[in-house]
Every structure is written in structure tokens, then in C-alpha cells.
Design a protein around this nucleic acid. Structure first.
Lengths: 346, 346
DNA sequence: CTGAAAGCGCTTACAG
DNA sequence: CTGAAAGCGCTTACAG
């Protein structure tokens, strides 16, 4: 209280409106992420809001406990998501963040509550310091709605990359597809099939093209019907396996887009009386818990899932601090882990 | 405070003023603790304020967004924890709760920060509406510290049950051990081994005694060295399997305390050239994702993990609402799921 | 898209 | 003590 003159009063909407030369109503709209504001005006106002460090009354009471990041999974929880959560939670603790886990498209959600604007509003009023989405389908509307309420977003291995620029973390999928195929080629295999996930998924496409590149480099044509893409799960792997192994001349080895697919393939081989790796070699992708516990243990491409989660958290922290990122997309290295499901061609 | 779903509109000063028969200004004064109000009027208004559960705008966002429950896992995340999380998150959404995921004994935690009192204090100041602990080692000190700060606790399948009375959710472990053993007996097996988790774990003990009861009912003595208890994981299963299968007269079937143990057993059998289920039958416990994706698929005892998570959430909500529970422990039913790892004795 | 205007929940100086 | 009235910060339906 010695220098009351230096104590600048908390900025109000009116303060911002005056310096922006717009009405209070317009500033209010920007603060609330409504969309009836021109991009131009929005930008000006948003700049002034952060410059004056404006906080809406609801946010003024500094929230008790640590700031919170929302971690959203799409659909069923899987071993993949589990490892990412583990990385996110561990890194979160180190940064003093609490991690709230939620679902991107929850089952029993009331209709309308998943509309991008409502969704973004909910996250903003819940005071989330940031959002991490894993393997989700995110529309451009989601992304813009979130940026309007000024909540930073990092996406891990999105199923679709919305056209809007999004910060994302992935792994070297192309290199992974390449390496696993080269491993099989080095073991003498020539008839190598590829069973991947959703054809539209960008990480799946990169894996497929890695496979294609390896085959091409080896001067090896991809046989008819040896590339199947459906979904990243066990059942899809089982179906693909059944189909491939019924071919007149079946493949001797298969590159899979995920560990679950690989396990489905293995079961399809087993029910046909084929042995792994003696009759068919299989390589997975991910190196989840599943790969380390299968019989035999799965040769696979390790994605550093925990590290990807940790990088997502660190990136979010930097974004929230207003840092400029060097790149809006980062890929961590994949690595071949040789276990018991691949063998030399007999 | 766990009931954001309450339909009645949030009370305003006007609401209170109307029922008190005074002006809004007077109510405002009472709320703000000004002293120009008669004791009489103050008392009336104060009663109505608390009756209507009035919260001033500044306090409204004290807990930004929905109330939050902390979900704590002990040690590594596993498929088991994954399914429980899924149940907790789904039920949480339905009750308007956010679920924060954390670790009970985080790796890089500063020394002292895990001391029960510090731990409980942290949860209380973070404004957690409740805590759920899964398969953790919880001391009586943890439990009392938490109850002192008035944060309700529900425990799922604790590794140790602290002597203090704790609210817990489990499944019918004894029945599970009994049923899986009876299944093997019905298939003609007599030399049946049991491989469980930590000997001190109460759920493991119940499973073991279920096995013992089934053997006894069948008039079947448990052969020497056929009961091993170490840990609920793959490596322990692998070691136990190696040991059992090296016995002069090895068992023809094994009851396991978890799916991971069963998978370790299967790998131990495979490296010895034994086939499952032809040479050895194996039953798991849990029915996690692992069981559905193994080769062959695992016969196991299903624990309703999602439902257990949901019940934990509902119990917490009831405790927070001050309800008196019928019982401080609830067990949900287990169920035998027959798949491909058990076969008639040859 | 923009903002004037009405309105909401709250606070406070002040007349009675 | 009490409350009418002015005013503050914010939101929103609506006219332009």
C-alpha cells in the first residue's frame, strides 16, 4: 500500500474495449469464443486481452491445487492409450500438472454437448490449462473452437489430421514400416503382406509406404491382394489373417500396423494349424504390453509411447507459456525389437 | 457438492431476499459480513443462505468446472488398471465428475511428499471431492490422514487391507478360485497347481483358498510344491511355470491369480515344447484385454473391472452426500469365461 | 459483423 | 438498521 499509484487496476472488458476501439459487447464475444466476430477484430482484441492479462470474473479466484490438463481418448481404452497415459501422468507430475482423463466422444453424452463450441467452452470454463487428444478424430471446427477460447491443444497420432494447423506428436511411422519390412527381407522372406489400420489414417499411410519402399528397394513386387487395411484391432487382424492364409500362395511373413492386429493374425494362423514363426513370421507395431506377453513374444516396432506422452505435456507447457515452437509437428524415433515371432524363411 | 445435476437454478441474492422478506441490499451485507445489520435479521438471512446453499460469484468457480476425484494407481499401469480407469471415467462423466489420474507412489517424488499427512493435505487443498485407490498398498496412516481432512476414500482390490475400516470394492475372489479349479477338475485334471500373486494380498488369499476348497471337495490332495505365490505379473508367471514344469511329475493344469501370470506360464510351456491346451491347461484371472488377444485365447475368470470402477465412483458420491452405506465392502460377481487354453485331460 | 440497449447479479453511498 | 437507487462488470437478443 506504499505506492497505490503503481497498482494498476484489474482490467475490465471496458478497458480492453477502449484500447481496441470496439464495444464492450464485442470484447465479451471474443472472451466467450462466440463466432460472430470477424477474424480481424478477434485478433486485435485477443492481443489486447493477453497484453492486459485479462481474466474473466469466473477465473479470477486462482484455482486451488495444480493447473489441470485434459487428456482425451477416442473410443475404447487400449494398451496403446495406457502407455501414453502413463507418460502423460508422469510428466504431468513433474510439471506440477494434474491430468484429467476423459473421452473425446463419450457414449452416453447428451446430444449437442459434443458440438465443438460447447465442447471448447466446457474445457475453458473448467479452467483446463491445455488439452491432449490421442488417436482421435478431430474436426477443424474442434480445433478452431478450442483456439478461440485460447486453450492450447496437442494431438498425439491423430486418426485424421484436420487441415487447420495443429500441434502434434507422433513417431517415425515411415521408418518403422521400412525397418520391419527390411527385417523380414533380411530373413529371406519375399512374399510379405501388409495388414494396416484405417486407410485414411495418416500414421497408417506412412507405415504402408515404408513397407512399399522397402519392397521396392529390394526389387520385390508386392503380390496381388497382399495389402489389407481396415482397423487397428485384433478382430481386423484375425479377419485379414484368415483371408491372407487362404490365398492359393499365402505370404510367408506379415508386417502389421499394430500389435493387436499382429495378435489377431497369430490366432488366425494357429486355428489353421500354422506355427509362428516356423510357418509364418509376424511383426507388430507399437510394442505395447501385449507384445511382451504374447506367446511367442512379438517381434515389433517400438513406438516410444510414454515419451510421446511426455513430449505432448512439455509442448503444452511451452505453448501455455507463450513460447514459439520450432515446429508444429515432432516425430520420435521408432525402433525394431526382435523377439520370437520372426524367423528365417525355410 | 458432488451434485452439479441438481435441477433447481442457482440461488441469487434476490431469491434469498424474497424468502427472508428483506431487500437484496441487506442480504448482500450479510453475505459480506458487514456490521450494519441487526443480529436478528442476520440470523434469519444466514439460515436461509445456508438452506439454499448460496455461493457468492467469487466462490462459484473455486472449483473450476466439475468436482474432481483423484484416481490413484500403485506402480506400473497395467491392463487391469486400464479397464478400471475406463469404468471410473465413464461413471465419472455420468455424475458430472472429472477424474484426475495419479500414482500412489510416484517414481520421482521428492522425499517426504509421500508422507501420509502431506499427501492427504495435498489432496484436500487441491479440492478433491474424493479419492479412489486401485491395488495399492495403503497404510492405516494414509487412511486416517485422509479422513482427518474429510476427503472420502474408496479402495479397489487393495494389496493389503489396513486395519482401519476402509470402504472397498472387490469381486468374489474365493468363488473365482473355486470355479476355475472346478472347471479343470470337471475336465478330468487331478494334478492342478496354483500360481498366485503376493502371499500377503487379501484377494490372492481368497483365490488360493477357493482353489483349496475345490480340491478338498473333490477329495483331491494338493501335491507338494504345487502352490506358488509371488507377484501378479508375467515374469513371476514365467518363473513359476519353469519351476512347475521341471517337477518330476509336473501338473497337467494350472490355476493362475492373474492373466499376466497365465501368459507367463504359457510362454514357459512353449519354450519347453509343451502345447497349450493339449499338454497343459491354464486358467487366468481378470479377463483383461490380454486374455482376449492371446494365442490361444485365454480361459479365465472375469472380474467386472469396469463395473467395479463404476461402483467405486457411485459409492464415493454417496459418501460425499453424507449417506450411510449398508456395508463398507462390496463384492461383485466373477464369472468363468471358457476359451482356448483348457482341455480335457488326455 | 457490430454495437446500442436491456437486463442480471451484485455492491455501496446515502437518505430515512 | 433498512432499503431505494445508482452504478459496475458482464452477457445477449436484436436491429442495422
Amino acid at each position: 500500500m506504499l505506492e497505490p499509484s503503481t497498482r494498476t487496476a484489474r482490467p475490465t472488458l471496458a478497458t480492453i474495449a477502449a484500447s481496441a476501439g470496439v464495444s464492450v459487447a464485442t470484447v465479451s464475444k471474443v472472451v466467450n469464443g462466440r463466432d460472430d466476430v470477424s477474424a480481424q477484430t478477434r485478433a486485435t482484441v485477443q492481443a489486447l486481452l493477453s497484453q492486459h492479462d485479462y481474466a474473466p470474473p469466473s477465473a479470477r479466484r486462482t484455482q486451488p491445487g495444480s493447473p489441470t490438463v485434459e487428456f482425451l481418448i477416442d473410443g475404447e481404452f487400449s494398451s496403446y492409450g495406457l502407455q501414453v497415459i502413463e507418460g502423460v501422468v508422469t510428466a504431468g507430475v513433474q510439471h506440477g500438472l494434474s491430468i484429467v482423463v476423459g473421452q473425446l466422444h463419450p457414449d452416453g453424452a447428451p446430444p449437442g454437448s459434443t458440438a465443438p463450441r460447447v465442447w471448447a467452452r466446457r474445457l475453458a470454463t473448467a479452467g483446463r490449462a491445455g488439452v491432449i487428444v490421442v488417436t482421435g478424430e478431430l474436426t477443424a471446427a474442434h480445433v478452431t473452437a478450442l483456439s478461440r477460447v485460447d486453450v492450447p491443444l496437442v494431438v498425439i497420432d491423430p486418426l485424421n489430421l484436420p487441415r487447420t494447423e495443429v500441434t502434434s506428436v507422433g513417431s517415425t511411422n515411415f521408418a518403422g514400416g521400412l525397418t520391419s519390412t527390411q527385417h523380414l527381407l533380411a530373413l529371406g522372406h519375399r512374399r510379405i503382406a501388409f495388414v494396416g489400420g484405417p486407410p485414411a489414417s495418416s500414421c497408417n499411410q506412412a507405415r504402408l509406404h515404408g513397407y512399399r519402399a522397402a519392397m521396392e528397394n529390394a526389387g520385390q513386387a508386392v503380390p496381388e491382394g497382399h495389402v489389407l487395411n481396415e482397423a487397428f484391432n485384433y478382430d481386423a487382424g484375425f479377419r485379414a489373417g484368415s483371408q491372407l492364409l487362404s490365398l492359393p500362395v499365402p505370404p510367408t511373413a506379415v508386417v502389421s500396423g499394430s500389435d493387436s492386429i499382429a495378435l489377431g493374425l497369430m490366432e488366425a494362423a494357429r486355428v489353421r494349424g500354422l506355427r509362428i514363426p516356423d510357418d509364418v513370421s509376424v511383426v507388430g507395431f507399437d510394442d505395447t504390453e501385449l507384445a511382451q506377453m504374447s506367446t511367442p513374444r512379438l517381434t515389433t516396432i517400438r513406438q516410444p509411447l510414454r515419451e510421446m506422452g511426455a513430449v505432448a505435456v512439455r509442448t503444452l507447457v511451452r505453448m501455455a507459456a507463450g513460447e514459439v515452437l520450432e515446429s508444429h509437428h515432432v516425430e520420435l524415433a521408432t525402433e525394431l525389437v526382435v523377439r520370437g515371432t520372426t524367423a528365417r524363411l525355410r
